[in-house]
Amino acid sequence: MTERMRESLSALMDGEADELELERVLKQIGDDGELRATWVRYHAVQAVYSKQAVPDLSIDISAGVRDAIQSQATSGARRWQGLLRPVAGFAVAASVATTVVLGGQQLASLNGSPASVETDVAMGVSPVGMVNSLGATSVRASYGTQSVPVLQPATGTAYSELARQRMQRFAQEHAEQAALNTPQGMLPFARVQRITE
């Protein structure tokens, strides 16, 4: 995967891609396994933002994405191209992204029983010393006719909490480096909520 492709992908995920970048990513994603994998990983972040379920990244859903793309492609490259032009880039990106997320959820439901998913989530954060006080549970929600286990914001919330805890733990160590290597002198220490000796 090239640097440029990475940038296009990142821009796409941030809703900043123009049509050209979108086209570049779509053209490449069918052939580039690494690009697909990266896409899936980036997607987890957006899922956290928007409090959607986080797709289980241990499952390789790239095949699903490729199938979705290819089925669109085989229905006529021209139709696919035609689809791109009139539709705003964002809408197309969103629809492809949705395929990714839904694919992940469906595969998750195939992979294990809801009970095992629940255990994973409930226990999942304890190795890093966080108490599961967030009520991380899985619930069954239906999507269309298919019953899909959806992780309510639990995983996302747990990770936000982890990120917050990491900030508290590491902020001072980062500030010591920032104070030596950025123009504001000692100021980075003021960003640390609680200074420890």
């Binding site: 956290v48 986080v54 999942g124 190795p127």
Partner: peptide, 12 residues
């Protein structure tokens, strides 16, 4: 980590 964690990401 000493054992598996559910993959995911978070920001603060």
């Amino acid at each position: 980590l000493s054992r598996e964690i559910r993959s995911g990401e978070g920001i603060a």
